[in-house]
Structures are given as C-alpha cells and as structure tokens.
Amino acid sequence: MFEPRIVAFFCKWCTSAGADLAGTSRMTYKPNITGIRVMCSSRVDPEHILDAFKNGADGVLIGGCHPGDCHYQSGNYQALKRVKLLKKMIKDLNINENRLRLEWISAAEGKRFTEVVDEFTEEIRKLGHIQYTVL
C-alpha cells in the first residue's frame, strides 16, 4: 500500500497543544505525518509549502487556532489568505489543491486532531504520489 509522506506545520499555541492532548489521551493516528512547530500559522511562508512539495511531500497540513482565538490576534487569518491563494497557484503546477490543507484545531481538540490527520492521510493516499509540472 502506498504510504504518503506528509509535512505539517502546527502553531505552538493551539494545534501543537491539541496534538499533545491527543498523545496524553493515548489516542492513535496514522504515522505518515511529521510536524514542525511554529509560533503561529502566519509564520508559514508559501515558499515553505512549495519547498515541501518540491522535496517530495505528498501533502502539507497547516494547523492554526480557530478564528478569533489566535494568540497573535490575526495570524490565522493571514494563514487563511495565503493558503487560499496558494491553492489556486499550485493548480498551475498540476498539484491537486487538496494536497494542501489548513485546519483550525484548538488545544482542547485532541480528538479532532486525530480525525483530521487520519482523514487527510487517507485523502492523500488516494491522490497517490506527488507529481508536478515544472513551469
């Protein structure tokens, strides 16, 4: 079975804490994802995402605080704007826009974290290996 490789960026305050909660609650999820902790989802530069695809990531997940809950007031909105735009751009590289996903996962949502990761992993598994067109 194809095992996708997924790179994730988790904001320190919400999603990374939510992932920790999934751990302390001994929930389980697919191991295909590897997370990088950032201070805020707004730190994720579209270049980091493209870098991941270029280096063979089959999917990229970004986790931030729910709207209105951002530790830095508006960082998650910045992330949303960038991801929306980038989704359009990666289509031009023949990358399915569903390979990039932004989710709001709070520090209290351990269960939701596992659901998002498992669901995203399966979706990427269906999409298969990353392939892109060099423009």
């Binding site: 201070m39 805020c40 530069d45 579209p46 830095y72």
Partner: peptide
C-alpha cells in the same frame, strides 16, 4: 514584536 513571524512570511 511578539514573535509570531507573520511578517517573515509576508
């Protein structure tokens, strides 16, 4: 500066 990094990405 509170170190969110939003500017670095922008």
């Amino acid at each position: 500066c509170e170190a969110c990094g939003a500017c670095a990405a922008a």
